[in-house]
Structure formats: structure tokens, C-alpha cells
Write a protein that binds this DNA or RNA. Structure first.
Length: 109
RNA sequence: GGAGUGGGCCAGGCGGUCGCACGCGCACGUGUGCGCGUGAGGAAAGUCCGGACUCCACAGGGCAGGGUGCCUGCUAACUGCAGGGCGCGGCGACGCGACGGAAAGUGCCACAGAAAAGAAAACUCUCCCGCGUACGCGGGAGAAAAGCUGAAACGGUGCGGUAAGAGCGCACCAGCGUCACGGCAACGUGGCGGCUUGGCAAACCCCACCUGGAGCAAGGGCGAAUAGGAGCGAUCAAGGCCGGCCCGGCCGUCGCUCGGGUUGCCCGCGUGAGGCCGUCGGCGACGGCGGUCCCAGAUAGAUGACCGUCCACGACAGAAUCCGGCUUACCGGCCCACUCCACUC
């Protein structure tokens, strides 16, 4: 799956994107530029609140696995998935439900 | 068998499905597909020391500032390690210690206590004189032992000595100085001497030794560049300005040279003070020699997710330039050596 590689682009999504929250995950999304046909990308973010380096790595991996199961990247959107403190310890079924819930509410899928 | 000391090692295993990063090979549509291989730690952590490396600065020396502080080694180097010495703790194996100087100077030593540092004063003790029946009172002289306090009281114990006492004298012990012997040394052992000096230097300080600064976001390259700038040279042939004209100057034109900043990409970037095995030297840290292996390299940052299964139910925790240490965190398991206690033969 294609990921967003530049810090500046992620900041843009933080500023301009729309936000949908859930206790296990927060999604930020933004429609891709019309000229860019295959622009759909994903990014995974875990802040200091999530924990140390090990916890942050695990949260991002778990999110990445859930996104892959749900068919990421989603056409037409750049999506940033933000981990929360409980993300790394949640059962994968709960996490799948959480991610698809925020994406459906945002209209991404 | 129990209790303990020191050292070393490990950090869930196995199977299946899907997936990530890098390298190699093969395809084609040149960034994708397939296959194979490799892929976090003992602390990767804290960033506390020491180096390598890079850039800047620099004649040499000194001061200031900072660091270190028993001795001898090891090392690229160290605030590290090894061995030794001394002190303290433990029955012991063993552990802990910034462990130079307090007669160079300054300063501090709470509370208590007469006194916390050129030692003087008080209670007190002894003797003499006077008063007084006696207890005692007044004056003079001598003494600092004993008692009280405290973490610490101007050496300790004993004998002699004395009016009572005191290193006043002597013996032993502690400490100081000095000599001899052993040891490379720290230091130890013994002799002699005069009898004596509180503690604190992670208080200022003194002495000895070490010491430029910043850090991989170091530093370098590519590049948007027919942009824009600086210097040198040529030309003034065409043109503009100063001028009536020439010389000259400025602009212009052409050629050459040069540095600067920023998102992006590349290098730096992993063959190294390297790991393992053997052997030799050394008590050891470590070193020499030989063999063998190539063992993460990302850049929003790669090791994961799910299922099954087994068991003692899995701690602390994620490389970011590299290496040597220190310190801190940690569920537990295994191995080796040693100590103490109990029991059996």
C-alpha cells in the first residue's frame, strides 16, 4: 500500500482534512487532487501519548495490519490513521470494527 | 538438604496463511512481478564519561575555567578494567570506599555542654593563713585528673611519683618523625627519638597530572539555472550617458573564473580498535600468531498480523554516524566455581 512520505503533506492533512474519532483510532482524510489519478495513500501516526518507542511501533503495526485487511488504500482519499493509547492492546477484531466504523462515518468506504 | 557469594549464558518454542525493508538473480512495460538470502538489545535506553570521524580555530608559552586524585599495569582513550595496598562491613565466600594535602592561609562544626580550637573560665580537688565549738566562711597558692554534654573534648591503659595532681617519670598501645630491611610502587615489618598535633577539602583553597570549540540536522555532491550576483580580461566594431572633438570614465556586449541560501535526491552509511575457534605469553585486564565468517542499514522511519499447538504462560524494552565503558530498568530460567550451617556414610 502506498504511504504518505512527506511530513509537510501530513501536516496539510492535519490542517485541512476532516476528522472522525473513535476510542481506538482517529481518522483524518482528504480527497486527493483531481489531476492525480492514483493518489490514494495512507499514513500511520502514533504520538507520545501512546507510550515509548516500542508501544508506538506496535500501535502503528497493528493499525497497518487492520488497514490492509480492510483494503487500504481507499480510492480517492488520503487517509491518516492516528493511534490512541489503547490501540496496541486491543483485539484485532475490535480494531477492524473501529477502523471500518470511522471510515464509513467519513464516507471513505 | 537449607542459606548465601562471585561469574557466564538465554530472553517463549514449533507449524500454517498473509505482509514489510534491504541485497542478489531472472523477466518485462524501468519500477513492478517472481524466486532465494538476511533483518534490533543486554540493556538498542539515560546521554553521564572516553575515543574514531567531520568542519572551524590555532607560532609558542602562560593565566583563567573545567576535569581527575592510594600504587602498578591494560587500553586508541577514559571518571573504565585488572592486580595489589589501606580502611570499613560480613562467621565466611566476598562486598563497599573521589582513598593527595588540615604545622600555607581563610572558613565551618547544629543541639547539648564550662569549653568546638593560640585555650581560658566555672563547679570541683589539695595545701597554707585568718575567723570559727563544728558544718563552714574569707584570702592566697597549686592542679586540670575525675564528673556532666556530644558524632567528636588538647592521646589511651597501668605503675611510680606528689600536699593534691599532671608525659612529671617509666612500660605497652595509638599517632608523628627518622633509620634499616622487603617491595618497581602504594605500603608492610623492625629499631630509635622527642613525649603529642580534634574533625570537615563532593567548603574556599594548595599541590600534581590532563584539557581548543562544535557536532552526522557534522560535512560533501547533484540540482530548479538561458534566473540573479561578484571579480578579471577583451571590445567599444553597432548603441546609450558626460562632451564640440580626442583621450578617458560609466553603462552595454563577449569570454573566463568564483562563492551563497532552501523543501527534494545521492554520498557520508558499515570490513570494524569486528565476531567466533584454536594456540602462545601473562595471576589477570589484555596482547601476539594462525584459521574462519561477513553479521540490520531504515528516512513517517522496516521484524508484524491472524490461526493452531506445547510449556515454567513470556519482564524491561526498538538500531538512526560508529566503537569502548559507566549508570539505570527488568517476569524468570540454565550452567560453573566457592562459602557457611545441618544431616548420613
Amino acid at each position: 500500500m502506498r504511504t504518505i512520505r512527506s511530513n509537510r503533506e501530513i501536516e496539510t492533512i492535519f490542517l485541512r482534512g476532516r476528522r472522525v474519532a473513535h476510542p481506538l483510532v482517529v481518522a483524518l482524510y482528504r480527497p486527493t487532487a483531481a489531476a492525480d489519478g492514483d493518489g490514494a495513500r495512507v499514513a500511520f501516526v502514533a504520538g507520545k501519548k501512546v507510550g515509548g518507542a516500542v508501544s508506538r511501533n506496535r500501535a502503528k503495526r497493528v493499525l497497518r495490519a487492520a488497514a490492509r485487511r480492510l483494503g487500504a488504500p481507499w480510492p480517492g482519499y488520503d487517509v491518516v490513521l492516528i493511534a490512541r493509547p489503547l490501540t496496541g492492546r486491543a483485539p484485532s477484531a475490535d480494531l477492524d470494527a473501529a477502523v471500518s466504523s470511522v471510515l464509513e462515518r467519513g464516507g471513505v468506504i
